[in-house]
């Protein structure tokens, strides 16, 4: 019992720390990639290649004067960024970061908890995430903040629907909503491909919705500077603003991990059982493979951000409700049909 608790606590702390560090260095990565795409150098003053830049940014955020608007609702004003940060970190619990590691005959799984409703848990956390933005925007008592918050939450609700529908097709195919089992089904050998091969449309819809859920360009309407000053975090300063911005990067990391797990095989990598490696080595290489996939998707987020301009708001809503949702319903029907035919004719 005690050893179990210690092992889980260590795992939670490690995953929490890793999420934070990855998110921290995503800010650095974003600035470097932006600089590369715009033919600039990017941050290069703090440490070699500017590697200490995120620390400098963090210190700056903490040192800034903290301003709480006089007429705002103080408790809710503080609660907003807390919820944003909390929900950003919560999803990491159900993601299988790797297979089990064997130490002294004991198997230690690298997933914090394998609840049998993994995907639904993810959606539950996602739907709470809206409140951070909404409460913060409302408590600021500023019309730009309120408009930004309303935009953000209506965007998130709209794209949540399409996201859920795109996952239903995947769940129909795999027959489980535990993320661990979905990963295990994608293990290599016998031409068993990653889910993206069987669900290309579902993957595209999920990816687009993930962009919208994390409020990244081309869907960063909530903080559209030209129309809304700063969106829902206009009134925020110091580390509370930092929390909102940081939560976005954690969300990006976690959603990349979810995409990698659901559609790109998670910690599986090609020929993992054919090279004659020991179990523990396979697990470690699997973690490395998962992180390689995650970093690729984080890079994709940044690549898109510095390539594509943002949508107009009506275009955003049309894309969500009139294109993605019918498309994902069509995808569900197609998946159902193929599953039925497969059962009937055994191919």
């Amino acid at each position: 019992m005690i050893s179990f608790l210690i092992y889980k606590t260590i795992l939670v702390i490690v995953i929490f720390a890793v999420s934070l560090v990855v998110a921290m260095y995503s800010t650095y990565g974003e600035r470097k990639i932006a600089a590369f795409m715009q033919d600039r150098i990017g941050p290069n003053r703090a440490g070699p290649f500017g590697i200490l830049q995120p620390l400098a940014d963090g210190v700056k955020m903490f040192m800034k004067e903290e301003i709480i608007p006089d007429v705002s609702n103080k408790a809710l004003f503080i609660l907003g960024p807390c919820i944003a940060m909390l929900t950003a970190c919560m999803t990491g619990v159900v993601i299988p970061w790797g297979d089990a590691i064997t130490i002294g005959g004991e198997k230690y799984s690298l997933q914090i908890t394998d609840i049998n409703i993994g995907v639904l848990y993810m959606f539950g956390v996602l739907s709470i995430g809206v409140y951070g933005v909404m409460i913060g925007g409302w408590a600021s008592n500023n019309k730009f903040s309120l408009l930004g918050a309303i935009r953000a939450s209506s965007q998130m609700i709209s794209y949540e629907v399409a996201m859920g529908l795109s996952i239903i097709a995947l769940v129909m195919m795999t027959g489980t909503i535990s993320l661990k089992e979905i990963t295990e089904q994608q293990a290599g050998g016998n031409w068993n491909m990653w889910n993206v091969v069987y669900q290309p449309v579902g993957f595209l819809i999920f990816l687009i919705c993930a962009f919208a859920e994390t409020n990244r360009t081309p869907f960063d309407l909530p903080e559209c500077e030209t129309e809304l000053v700063g969106g829902y975090h206009t009134e925020y300063s110091s580390m509370k603003l930092g929390f909102y911005l940081f939560a976005e990067y954690i969300n990006m990391f976690i959603s990349s991990a979810v995409i990698a797990t659901l559609y790109f095989g998670g910690y599986n990598f090609p020929f993992m059982h054919d090279l004659g490696l020991s179990e523990n080595l396979i697990t470690i290489l699997g973690v490395v493979a998962l992180f390689a996939k995650i970093f690729f998707f984080i890079f994709l987020y940044m690549w898109v951000r510095w390539t594509v301009p943002r949508f107009r708001y009506d275009q955003l809503m049309n894309l969500g409700w009139k294109i993605l949702i019918p498309l994902s319903i069509g995808n569900i029907m197609l998946t159902g049909l193929i599953t039925l035919l497969r059962q009937k004719y055994h191919f």
């Binding site: 959606f123 739907s127 709470i128 809206v130 918050a149 309303i150």
Partner: peptide, 26 residues
């Protein structure tokens, strides 16, 4: 009843109450 719990959070806390908040804030 984990399924019920998750659906309860998604549907009631996550979707319906957001609409409530919308209306009341506006």
């Amino acid at each position: 009843a984990q399924f019920l719990a998750a659906v309860h959070v998604i549907v009631y806390a996550g979707a319906i109450m957001v609409l409530f908040l919308f209306v009341i804030m506006l």
